[in-house]
Design a protein around this nucleic acid. Structure first.
Length: 470
RNA sequence: GCUCCCAUCGUCUAGAGGCCUAGGACACAGCCCUCUCAAGGCUGGUACGAGGGUUCGAAUCCCUCUGGGAGCGCCA
């Protein structure tokens, strides 16, 4: 990849980091920094009324958790900052003046209610709602008159009348839009605040961004930004528009249903590498069918392997990668992952052993809870089917097991041999009644590993109890 | 309402006119392995939204429709 490549992620702190945005960030990161270029992070907090600093912190934390890192951002300036739009006012002011001076922008005194009426009229007439151009040709005296009325002007971009804007979208291919369909758009609010179209495009250019990956919803707005940058004489990045993420029913991913934020997934115990493996394949081919280590993600990422249709978020597939990720945990990582679920009074040694023992049978940390009672407490009541298995084995079987356990102790191999000799049973007929009696369930880690983890007194009590089942 | 985008198994997708009686992965079912579950191995079912063209030949190209999405904000 070209080392001059600069990509960016530009979150707006209006909430938690959404899965769709996380995917956009991941892809941008892979296209940039992870491929030998640069990746920067810019906080789009130009609208002071929305969101808050807590969201900036949480989003950056989520990105870090996912394994993304940036060369420049709000926490590290490289001289092209600041990287928060709220701190870039002076930069914007200079550009606004230039635009106005050169006739590319003009003050607009229309009020929101007036604009709203105009929109309704256009809609009713079957016309697309566009700014009617009321203030486009105002002369000095007309402007003075509006100011005298106490009106505060917004600044509008003067879209050239008859032009066709053409550009090559990084994922969509060639695009062509007639300027006439655009309508003059606002660059600066009446209260002085900058507008997305403006600061987003300007910042990308000023920060040296060469490739912008963003959501599909920005595709039809791209011509505006291209026009604006051109008027400013600023170089434009190349844009690539990613299909949106939708839920199982095909509706846009909404914060209301299910876990759709990175934070929620993390809280439920999903591992970052699992989320990464899933996101890497969501609407993108090029990754092998097998697990990919996060460090190798960039090698599997390619712009021309991006899909063009909306991608469905599918928990079953996420869970598949989660299992893969859990399986790859080292014992230390497993302890850390299980940390909040592990009984606080257990020793470091016990916690380690437990994590190692259960790792293969868990998908989420919360799944571990059931096993604690298996190892230390009460078993859940047996199902009718399980009782049948115990009854079929019969009291003699468990009395023999008790005797074998006295002989062999927690050495499961020896216990098995002993019991086989005493009862003549083998295979499932031998082990299943044992498993059920000992754990109260039919699944779980190998009995050979499980047995030593259960205190001897509990083992004896359970075997004795099973002997009493008829 | 207008403009634009998208459309292959349930899901992620391969497929850039003949290699497709459409391939892989996840999920599902069965079998094998196995003390169980998981993992692994094998097998199976399920898809080119509809209708018209173009062509010797279309999942692939064109048109219409249908369905889904986005944009048209002094939101980002």
């Amino acid at each position: 990849m070209d080392p001059k490549t600069v990509t960016r992620f530009a979150p707006s702190p209006t909430g938690a980091l959404h899965l769709g945005n996380a995917r956009t960030a991941l892809f941008s990161f892979l296209l940039g920094r992870a491929s030998g270029g640069r990746f920067i992070l810019r906080v789009e907090d130009s609208d002071r009324g929305r969101g808050g600093p807590e969201f900036v912190a949480s989003q950056l934390a989520d990105l870090t958790w996912l394994g993304l890192s940036w060369d420049a951002g709000p926490d590290r300036d490289d001289g092209r900052g600041p990287y928060r739009q709220s701190e870039r006012g002076p930069i914007y002011d200079g550009l606004y003046k230039k635009l106005e001076r050169e006739g590319h922008a003009y003050p607009c005194y229309c009020t929101p209610p007036e604009l709203d009426v105009a929109r309704r009229v256009q809609l009713a007439a079957g016309q697309p709602p566009r700014y009617p151009g009321t203030c486009r040709g105002l002369d000095a005296s007309a402007r003075a008159a509006r100011v005298a009325e106490g009106r505060l002007p917004a600044l509008r971009f003067r879209v050239p009348d008859s032009r066709v804007i053409e550009f090559e979208d990084l994922v969509r291919g060639p695009q062509s839009v007639a300027a006439a369909t655009l309508g003059d758009f606002v660059l600066r609010r009446a209260d002085g605040g900058p507008i997305f179209f403006f600061c987003n495009a300007v910042d990308d250019s000023l920060m040296g961004v060469t490739q912008v990956l963003r959501g599909d919803d920005h595709l039809s707005n791209t011509p505006r930004q291209l026009l604006l940058l051109q008027a400013l004489g600023l170089p434009a990045p190349r844009y690539g528009h990613l299909p949106l993420l939708v839920d199982a029913s095909g509706a846009p991913l909404s914060k209301r249903r299910g876990s759709t934020t990175v934070g929620e997934l993390r809280e439920r115990g999903y591992l970052a590498a699992a989320v990464g493996n899933y996101l890497l394949r969501l609407g993108h081919t090029g990754a092998p069918d097998q697990w990919v280590e996060p460090a190798d993600f960039a090698r599997s990422f390619s712009l021309d392997r991006l899909g063009r249709a909306p991608a469905h978020f599918d928990t079953a597939q996420l869970d598949h990668w989660q299992r893969e990720a859990v399986r790859r945990l080292t014992p230390e990582q497993a302890v850390h992952w299980l940390d909040a679920e592990l009984p606080a009074d257990w020793s470091a040694q016990e916690r380690r052993e437990l994590a190692g023992l259960l790792r293969g049978n868990l998908v989420f940390p919360a799944d571990a809870a059931d096993w604690f009672s298996v190892l230390r407490g009460e078993l859940v009541p047996l199902t009718a089917e399980d009782r049948t298995v115990l009854a079929e084995a019969g009291p003699a079987f468990f009395e023999a097991a008790l005797a074998a356990y006295r002989e062999a102790g927690a050495d499961f191999g020896a216990l098995g041999r002993e019991l086989k000799q005493r009862t003549g049973r083998k295979g499932a007929a031998l082990f299943m009644p044992l498993r059920i009696a000992l754990t109260g369930r039919r699944d779980g880690p190998e009995l050979a590993a499980l047995l030593p983890a259960i205190p001897a007194a509990l083992v004896r009590a359970r075997l004795a109890g099973a002997a009493g089942v008829h």
